[in-house]
Computed example of a mutant assay.
Amino acid sequence: MKIFLWLFIFFTTFCIMEFMAWFTHKYVMHGFLWSLHQDHHHKHHGSWWERNDFFFVFYAVVSMACIMLPPSYTFGIGKPIGFGILAYGIAYFLVHDIFIHQRFKLFRNANNWYAKGVRRAHKIHHKHLGKEKGECFGMLFVPFKYFKR
């Protein structure tokens, strides 16, 4: 029975992270921490590392803390929460950093309807280079209007 509870918590955490990514992006990255996120929209640097990557580090630390803290600190559900955050982080990195922004030259030839829709939605977001009017979407739950067959 415990395995089903852990799986439920893991998948629920993964889905909640989609909301957290949207919320953080809209209200934190395009809000009071725009100074960290700005270099993601304006490539005025020659480095592979962006200040924007500190958001990834933050969520990685939260994930590791959930996994590594003893059950008495996490009500016994820290590990599935931590691994749910980790799984979302891996999925986000694959879709956003590798597939969309091509930080590593992989998945270049993916041209199915889902791939095109995700790319289209992200281009609309990056069309606005400033702090304001940055239309935000999740990574997995992109509005269907961007998917054309």
Rank of each mutant, 00 (worst) to 15 (best):
N52D: 15
D53A: 12
F55L: 05
F55H: 13
F56E: 04
F56C: 07
F58A: 14
Y59I: 13
A60L: 13
A60H: 01
A60V: 14
V61Q: 01
V62H: 01
M64N: 07
M64S: 13
M64A: 15
A65I: 10
I67G: 10
I67P: 00
M68R: 10
M68F: 06
M68S: 05
L69V: 05
L69I: 08
P71K: 11
S72F: 12
S72R: 11
S72T: 15
Y73P: 00
T74Y: 03
F75E: 07
F75P: 00
G76T: 09
G76S: 08
G76C: 02
G76K: 03
K79W: 03
K79D: 02
P80G: 04
P80F: 03
I81V: 15
I85D: 09
I85H: 04
A87W: 03
Y88E: 04
G89P: 00
I90C: 09
I90M: 11
A91R: 03
Y92R: 09
L94C: 11
L94I: 15
V95W: 05
V95S: 05
V95G: 01
H96T: 10
H96R: 04
I98C: 06
I100S: 01
I100C: 09
H101W: 02
H101E: 05
Q102M: 04
F104K: 14
F104H: 12
L106C: 13
F107G: 07
F107L: 14
R108H: 02
N109W: 04
A110T: 10
N112D: 15
N112E: 02
W113V: 15
K116M: 11
K116Q: 12
